[in-house]
Design a protein around this nucleic acid. Structure first.
Lengths: 127, 127
DNA sequence: GTGCCTGCAAACATTTTGCAAAAAC
DNA sequence: GTTTTTGCAAAATGTTTGCAGGCAC
């Protein structure tokens, strides 16, 4: 019999997960660490990285790479807009026809996608 | 009078640029370095990074982040497909209606976009 | 000759990892 | 009690940078 690893629910996992679902600002690991530390003062940055990686692997969090990794706890399929001036990442809840591309193209089996738009946000464009 | 910096064409820039235009495998900086070293044995990795960054800034090269940075010398707008098993990056020359998203959304001014599809390529799916 | 660019190596920032103690089950 | 997870700190990785000499113009 192969012993199988059963995941355990720790307060670290729960609180990081809750935090990511409650914010919309796509924080980096460092920022998640700082925020979560308010509730769990003894947590370490390494743990934050480990938990973020496992949440991503499970599909409960989406990673957005912009210089460094940022994390989005909203897993409904959507796009991201990154302002090249202020670096803010915002959500765009609008479907793109990637599904259509899938069908037309025969590269293989498509499981997910990431779409990032780059430009200037309204605030930065007007200044 | 503000003195203005005029760019100079060096063999390093020319050969890296040529190399990226001649391949379709989306190499990392390290791989570009190894390949270009065949023609320029004295080139350094730092120079490769500097030139890749400047080409990207000028829009002559597209950066694809997948764990590390990969570079695409083909600047015609297209999508990328990454196999989650063999990590190969392939091009998909097909337009997506991101333009349409732009018009519908009013986040600001959109300058460019990156679309990455993740899945299993045909070879990996059948094994 | 002027000043941009390179090679080198050291520095940097982010992320990963090994290990012993702690917590979950 | 067993096994997973954590905190800590050190290591690893990819990338950037300062500087002196080299090369483009």
């Amino acid at each position: 019999m192969v012993s199988q690893k059963t995941e355990r629910l720790t307060s670290q996992k729960r609180i990081i997960s809750e935090h990511l679902k409650s914010v919309t600002n796509h924080p980096s690991a460092e920022i998640v660490y700082k925020e979560v530390k308010k509730r769990l003062p003894q947590i370490s940055l390494g743990t934050v990285y480990r938990i973020l990686a496992s949440l991503e692997k499970k599909g409960e969090v989406v990673e957005i790479t912009h210089d460094i990794s940022h994390y989005d706890g909203n897993t409904s399929p959507h796009l991201h807009f990154i302002c090249e001036r202020c670096d803010r990442i915002s959500d765009i809840f609008r479907k793109c026809d990637v599904i259509q591309c899938q069908k037309l193209q025969n590269v293989g089996q498509i499981n997910s996608y990431k779409i990032i738009l780059y430009g200037f946000c309204k605030k930065c464009r007007n200044s």
